Simulated assay, not measured.
Amino acid sequence: MLHSKAVTIAVALYLITTGFPAHSQSYPARPVRLIAPFAPGGGVDIVTRLVGQKLGEALGQQFVIDNRPGAGSNLGTGLAAAAQPDGHTLVVVSVAYAINRSLYKSLGYDPKDLTVIGLIASAPNLLVVHPSLPVSSPGALVDLAKRTPGSLNYASAGAGTPTHLAAELFNSMSGAALVHIPYRGGGPAIIDLISGQVKVMFPGIIAAIAHVNNGRLKPLGVTSLKPSRVAPGVPTIAASGFPGFEAENWYALLAPAKTSRAIVNMLNVELNKITSAPEVQERLARGGAEPLSGTPTEARMYVLHEMKKWAKVVAASGATVK
């Protein structure tokens, strides 16, 4: 992950070496369409509105939020890929962008038609179990699963969702062989987990933390490489015997691939300023998210790494969507 403090020098050097050609100074010339490829109210929508508001304030033009849900975010992402590469159509994507490349037989667009401007934030999932399960750590869960093969199931928000693939990554790294029970959405899955119909889940941390705090769910580990401020005292899975385990829902800003380097650089600089602002960091923290920053090149490399990682998990899970 590319955190604000860690990249300050890198960003400064990047700007010195790239600079801003004169034609970028007239951008944006009109309101910018900022696509959120999910329905209003979710994490992507919230992050998109926050970024759009701050970019509008910084650049003196309105950033109009355009919610275009459908096909697991492929519909809205495809609209951005097909847009004119003049910087006036952008899209905020999540980890689903990396997962979908392997999950869907046809995306409806070519990922090569998009370029990554920068990372915005990331939020971990939380490995939780029903309180009746006699385990208190990820390792103990794996031991129990191996002693009673096929007896432990886990809920997900649906096949191919981050809650599903986080569990499959855990299966592949631990050998736990937890059995998948897909639901139509995270809400029904958590309800059945609380009632004991299923025993394990990897929900988003904000969806789970209230139930953890009132004792309805037992936390075993967070899926980020660093502990989460939202779940103090809960160790990372990586530090609990599974080094390198990481499954986070990240957000990134993308543009059509042929957008000028000057505009991409300008937006990257403004995005880094936004995620470094204390007010924005506090708003992200309330949603369980950590701010990210870095150069466009660093962001692209991170997204490519995520695509490769999740391709292996999707293949191992057998999940596919036509």
Rank of each mutant, 00 (worst) to 15 (best):
A315T: 14
T48K: 11
E57D: 14
V230S: 15
H305N: 12
R30G: 00
P85W: 06
D143Q: 12
I117W: 02
N272C: 09
V198P: 09
W310N: 07
A316D: 07
L119D: 11
S317Y: 00
T148D: 14
A255C: 01
A36N: 03
G76W: 02
Q61C: 09
E168K: 01
G56S: 08
S172W: 08
E290L: 11
S172Y: 06
G204E: 09
A145M: 07
A319E: 03
E290R: 14
G56A: 10
L34S: 08
L178T: 04
G78Y: 03
P111G: 02
P21V: 08
L217W: 09
H180L: 07
I206Q: 15
A255N: 03
N268D: 13
A262M: 01
L107F: 06
A257R: 14
T17K: 15
S172A: 15
N268H: 09
I181Q: 13
T89V: 12
V142P: 00
L292A: 04
V116P: 02
P37K: 00
L253V: 01
S26M: 13
L225W: 02
P243M: 13
G19S: 12
I205E: 06
E168Q: 10
G244W: 10
F242W: 09
G42F: 10
L55M: 10
P227F: 02
Y109T: 00
